[in-house]
Amino acid sequence: MSLSRCGVSWSRLYATAKRLSTVAGFSANGPNHSLSVRCRRYAASTATSHQSSTRVNMYVAEERGAPFTPEYRVYFKDESGPISPLHDIPLWADRAQRLVNMVVEVPRWTNAKMEISLSEPLNPIKQDVKKGALRFVHNVFPHHGYIWNYGALPQTWENPQHVDPATQARGDNDPIDVIEIGERVAQRGDVYPVKVVGTLALIDEGETDWKLIAVDARDPSAAQLNDVADVERLFPGLLRATVEWFRLYKVPDGKPVNKFAFDGEAKDKEFAYKIIDEVHDFWRSLVNGEVADATNICTSNVSVAGSAARLERARAAALLAAAPPAAPPAPRPPQVDKCYYLSNL
């Protein structure tokens, strides 16, 4: 869709993107992203918002460091400067329509295990590290990388001190995960409203790790996806492939097959929204400093009313300014493209 058909002025977009890039003294010609990339991201988000009555929030993802290195980070900004994607992006995009915001960590078909950093100020996205090595998920035949856009809901937290009565396992100490099944391949750092239709309950190394099943609210199939049963009707085989993916993806590392609560059955949307409300309440307790033994999570934010960890905008800008400049991606390890053939036990 062209911008002119949407009634969007390119000069206006350019001016807005330039203003975003120069918030708190960041140069529009700085080494992080080219201005043209920022304009395209902003334009795409604005154009799609004209196709829906749902407001699409304007967040800018800013890369720092070189992808596929330990220094790589993706920071987030709103129109006033840097923010935390975990604490400052609202959970609800449109509560009346039951749409929640999703932060994309891993685009479909990619392998790098990216995730919101809980321990760092501003909670940027970074690549996970295990045993001193950057993590890439293995290709377990017939899958390649992640088979959906993968990310998390902001302002949620799976409390490790809480034993879920349905799964009899504690939370995994992360924001709740989302698998987004729409047709578009997202970009890392995208933020957009999704419609939740169900959830799976992965038991990952003894912890409850909810996997919400959702679709981009602007996807052509969104109007027909109203509950988990519609996933099988419209995307036959996807739920089965999803369960297989999570069961087997750690096996090439020598770990056992993962298990699911409810025998791998996906629960419906009403069940899923109850879980969302619960983990949102856990997050609120966390950010308000009411949770003991949660010192490994940085709760710094710029917008949460009453939070003791609230930062001045200038301080948030200084944190981002101190990050290394963006750089070209490092080579991926050659074994990332290897395919593993496993029996689906």
Rank of each mutant, 00 (worst) to 15 (best):
E244A: 13
K259H: 09
D209I: 06
T208M: 12
L212K: 03
T242Q: 09
W245M: 02
N226W: 00
P252H: 08
T242K: 02
V231M: 01
R247E: 13
D219L: 01
T208K: 13
F260I: 06
F282N: 07
K255Q: 15
D209T: 10
S221C: 03
A261S: 14
A261C: 08
L239V: 13
V215I: 15
R240V: 13
D281P: 00
R218C: 02
G206Q: 09
K274E: 15
V231Q: 00
K255A: 13
L234F: 11
L200G: 05
K259Q: 12
A266N: 02
E265W: 06
V243D: 00
P220C: 09
D204Q: 06
W210M: 03
R247Y: 05
V257F: 10
V257Y: 11
D219N: 09
K269N: 04
V215K: 00
R240A: 14
V279T: 15
E244Q: 15
K269C: 09
R240N: 11
N226T: 14
D216H: 07
F282I: 03
E205V: 11
I203L: 14
A217C: 09
F262V: 02
G206D: 10
E244F: 04
F271V: 07
A217Y: 00
G237A: 08
Y249D: 07
A261V: 07
F260P: 05
F260M: 11
A266H: 03
R218F: 08
A222W: 01
E244L: 12
R240D: 15
G237D: 05
D216Q: 03
H280C: 02
A261G: 13
A201C: 14
A201K: 13
A222F: 04
A223L: 13
A222R: 00
D227E: 11
I213N: 04
D216M: 03
D253P: 06
E207M: 12
G254M: 06
K259N: 07
K274T: 11
D227M: 02
R233G: 00
G264N: 04
I276V: 15
E207S: 12
F246C: 10
